[in-house]
Design a protein around this nucleic acid. Structure first.
Lengths: 374, 374
DNA sequence: CCCGCTTCTGACAACGTTGTCCAGGCTCTA
DNA sequence: TAGAGCCTGGACAACGTTGTCAGAAGCGGG
């Protein structure tokens, strides 16, 4: 799948090639510099070329480029001139091969376009930058196979570490990589069947608080619309919902919960269903931001006022009528914490995997404080 | 800055090291396989190790790994067993060095956390994936120096191509890279002082339409709040605003335009300023999504109804009272178009730089259709 | 039985960089 | 002025992979 050879044609830059050896043929000027100047990467100059032009040894160029001591100012000047003249830039691929560290980390998430992941990946990027690393990014689209494919492609690139928001629930395929020293932190959902660092929100507690909040405002018939329970966060939020109901001694009717429903059309259907019938719900707890947005739309079309608390904050939630009460999780902190743990694994100060749970915050804006309207 | 050596310590995995040579010391079992098994990357097995274990030559392993023909099923089976047993994974860094292509592209944008860039980078990622490439991501934070630093770091990694949303206005530093064959496409804003592919929205036309829309609804005193005119999009939108006003024969008062203002506090101040005074504006045209959001908040606090059209769509804009009329640009198409052109550059079918302008779309939702309230 | 052909395999060099180590020239001191 | 020690510079190998090429083994036909 992710394979360099088959991907796209190598652009031939119209340089004659020796049929037998495949080497580039260059007019032989009998000058060492000229012969050396013929390399690949679209004929990028190498240290060898710079050395030839500056009339110094290869290693001396390396020393200048890397700011190592032991080069006279005069020599350094000549080298710098040659670098400038040729437009040389060090090839980090080769450097990586030699040094064994790529100074890059991989981030696999569900969907870059989801507003929840924007701040998260930005936070990871900031930490990476502070540690001199670049960020390689990929979306799994909630597909376990694609997740694995991406993760392994990143491992083949020899990223130093991985931040993974898992789509699947079995990560044993990562065992050889972990053993080989690839630092790994899972975020938002725990890893499956392996022992690894994980940073998550208190999904259970947040959901329980949200539903308890609705109960405290007098609701008894409370609906829940969430994602597939296969997804850890969804399962935890469902568990929180159930716990709060049970704490209040309320028996949950089957018609009140709708699981595995996220696309707008089906969410709409689920919401309509709960609001119809002989004993409709008077409040809805929505399991993530996408569901919340759709339910807000549905409720806006209804005359009866139905209370709503959503998991995840949404932009402009305070400007709606009524404002949308939410359980907010801090995506940026999630990402920052995970990335920081990653680099602590890398510098060796972090040894045993831990599970870190970050608190959520209930933000009341009106929709969650509406009384039941029977 | 982005330097592999200084970034973080290499984790010592408690393997004794020869002080003189720095090589790992391994109990000498006099077995070739055992000696070969000692490599780097946290002691990852290499093809050499696999070869030794399978009792075949190095190249045969390479053939199996890459699915090249000319290996008997029996040999292949032995090799695959060895790969499995050792947890071998091909080192793409070495592969890249040998092949000269990294099958990765770089994306430099302003801020991953900005909702406008989420869909854009997702679209770029999709195209990259379809072409077998990975995506390396970085945020410039609207800082030209940081943009350059990032771009050059990506070039040092030898990404095959770059998609850049420029922060600066001088990209001559890219000339050696372009000459060396790094495919490059600029998005959202054109490159400065170099000739390169660029994909942008019709900022001028969109802004003119937006303001003309307000004028058509009877407004004459129309304010504009936008970003620094140093930023191309901001300048174009300002130009569109001016053009629409001029077309209608309206002279723009100094107090009506506010430039270089994006942080919420100052936007709020600018908006309040326009709405106060002897002849306040009756409508505001906001230059980007962040400004729009703040102005929506400000207007929500005012009793007098002020018309509003914003550049960029915002989520839930239809649910506000009134719905927010916007000029929407299609971030995903922007990204997809740019990435597709990038790969067409790479396969050699695209030769001369072009400027592509994508149309914008005026979405009327209420706020832009309010009549003037003097 | 030998020759030539095909099929499979492996030795070797190369990609561009960095780490090691040694040579040569210099300075400084006795 | 000779010897020790330091500084600078360069030759060389190695990182893990792939491309080239040639050798070995198997096989059929003359």
């Amino acid at each position: 799948m992710l394979d360099a050879t088959s991907s796209y044609k190598i652009m031939d830059r119209h340089i004659p090639v020796d049929d037998r050896t495949g080497r580039r043929i260059v007019p032989d000027t009998h000058s060492r510099a000229d012969r050396l100047a013929t390399t690949r990467y679209g004929n990028r100059p190498t240290m060898k070329d710079v050395a030839a032009r500056a009339g110094v040894g290869l290693k001396t160029v390396s020393r200048v480029v890397n700011g190592e001591p032991g080069v006279t100012p005069e020599t350094e000047h000549r080298v710098r001139e040659a670098i400038e003249a040729l437009g040389f830039r060090r090839n980090d691929s080769a450097r990586v091969l030699r040094k064994g560290r790529t100074a890059s980390i991989g981030l696999v998430l569900e969907d870059l376009a989801d507003p929840f992941y924007g701040p998260l990946s930005r936070a990871v990027e900031e930490v990476a930058r502070a540690n001199g690393a670049l960020l390689i990014n990929g979306s799994s689209a909630e597909d376990p196979e694609r997740e694995q494919e991406l993760v392994l492609a990143l491992c083949a690139r020899r990223v130093d570490g991985l931040v993974v928001i898992p789509a699947g629930d079995d990560h044993r395929y990562l065992e050889p990589e972990l053993k080989a020293g690839v630092a790994t932190v899972f975020v938002d959902r725990p890893a499956g069947r392996i022992d690894a660092d994980v940073v998550l929100s208190d999904n259970f507690g947040g959901a329980r608080d949200a539903v308890a909040h609705l109960i405290a405002h007098g609701h008894r018939r409370i609906g829940f619309i969430g994602d597939m329970p296969r997804i850890h966060t969804a399962a935890e939020r469902l568990r929180g919902y159930r716990a709060a109901m049970e704490d209040a001694g309320i028996e949950v009717a089957d018609a009140w919960t709708s699981l595995g429903v996220t696309d707008p059309v089906r969410v709409r259907g689920a919401a309509e269903g709960m609001l119809a019938g002989p004993s409709p719900v008077t409040a809805i707890f929505t399991g993530n931001n996408r569901v919340t947005v759709t339910v807000v739309r549905v409720l806006a079309e209804h005359t009866r006022r139905v209370a709503l608390v959503g998991f995840d904050d949404i932009e402009l939630a305070d400007l709606l009528q009524p404002g949308v009460t939410v359980v907010a999780q801090d995506a940026a902190t999630l990402g920052r914490t995970a990335a920081e743990r990653l680099f602590r694994q890398l510098d060796g100060t972090l040894l045993t995997p831990e599970r870190i749970e970050l608190p959520t915050r209930l933000i009341t804006r009106g929709s969650g404080e509406l009384p039941p309207a029977d």
